[in-house]
């Protein structure tokens, strides 16, 4: 049963895609407006593949289990009718406690430095994660991982280059980049916390042992920050909760916007 694992990966992709899409039309320079939108589209595409796969797994479950699975009323009511659910139901009808994305990804764009820092932490993780996912007992996850690795490789190059450019640019950009790196640091620990879902996934041959990628992540982050003349944060206290559905205040506002149409006009074809 890969559902929980599939859903958390899907939620990660959905929420970062949403945040990056907020830049569309407002980028610091036209070429970067296009680049950031492209990246948003990659994440959204991955979210869709994963939600579709999650829906397929969910619909195959026994009805009693399905009735218990989600907490959110709107989705629960739909499931109780015995109807199959699809990618849109999962994305638009769950409240925060059913969303399992990393807290890092729901943090607001603020400015270009924050946006880059958030992507840099996540892209580095994703690159290692999807690299490790290539060998996967689950053929659907393997296929998604293969496509994702190509995209993520580009994302990582893009965000790393921006970290270097801003870190080693002007005094002002250096300052802003260091601040963003420092302030988002507390959300990076959660990426490597192995919970039951991760353990099951590793045992089942379809998940990644996060302990094996953590040192590589730290090395890579440190190397890029060094090149960018920036300092690697040393704080060890980390925020957690996203994987259990305990979020920062940010997610509620994202969902309010994201889900507006399906909530105001339920059950229609668009």
């Amino acid at each position: 049963m890969n559902l929980a694992y599939t859903l958390r990966l899907a939620d990660d992709a959905m929420i970062i895609g949403h945040r990056l899409s907020e830049w569309c039309g407002h980028g610091p320079v036209l070429e970067q407006d296009i680049a950031v939108t492209n990246t948003a589209l990659d994440h959204l595409g991955r979210a869709r593949s994963l939600y579709q796969y999650a829906a397929k797994q969910f619909n195959a479950m026994p009805q009693e289990e399905k009735n218990q699975y989600f907490s959110s009323v709107a989705l629960q009511s739909l499931v109780e009718t015995g109807a199959d659910i699809d990618e849109d139901d999962i994305a638009f009808l769950r409240d925060g406690w059913d969303y399992r994305n990393l807290l890092l990804l729901e943090q607001p764009n603020q400015d270009w430095a924050y946006t880059i820092a958030r992507s840099f932490y996540y892209d580095t993780f994703n690159y290692l994660f999807f690299g490790a996912m290539q060998q996967n007992a689950d053929s659907e996850l393997a296929a998604i991982a293969e496509k994702s690795l190509k995209e993520v490789t580009y994302h990582l190059r893009w965000s790393s280059e921006w970290v270097i450019r801003l870190g080693d640019g002007t005094d002002e950009s250096h300052q802003k980049m260091q601040t963003a790196i420092n302030e988002l640091w507390e959300f990076t620990g959660e990426m490597f916390t192995m919970d039951n879902t991760d353990m099951h996934a590793v045992q089942g041959g379809y998940g990644v042992d996060l302990n094996t990628i953590k040192p590589k992540w730290t090395d890579q982050i440190a190397a890029i920050l060094h090149e960018a003349t920036l300092t690697l944060p040393t704080a060890t206290w980390m925020q957690e909760g996203g994987r259990e559905g305990r979020h920062t205040e940010q997610l509620g506002y994202i969902l309010t916007e994201l889900q507006f149409m399906q909530r105001a006009y339920p059950g229609m074809e668009w």
């Binding site: 036209l30 070429e31 939108t37 589209l41 959204l44 990618e87 668009w270």
Partner: peptide, 29 residues
């Protein structure tokens, strides 16, 4: 149009709209 990207009613509509607005940036370029 960018005004509706975060509120598009389905994931497919969102992806198409995002790609469309991106095309416009390309045209500008």
């Amino acid at each position: 149009e960018g005004n509706w990207i975060t509120r598009a009613p389905t994931l497919r509509r969102k992806a198409v709209l995002l790609a469309k607005v991106q095309d416009e940036a390309g045209h500008g370029l």
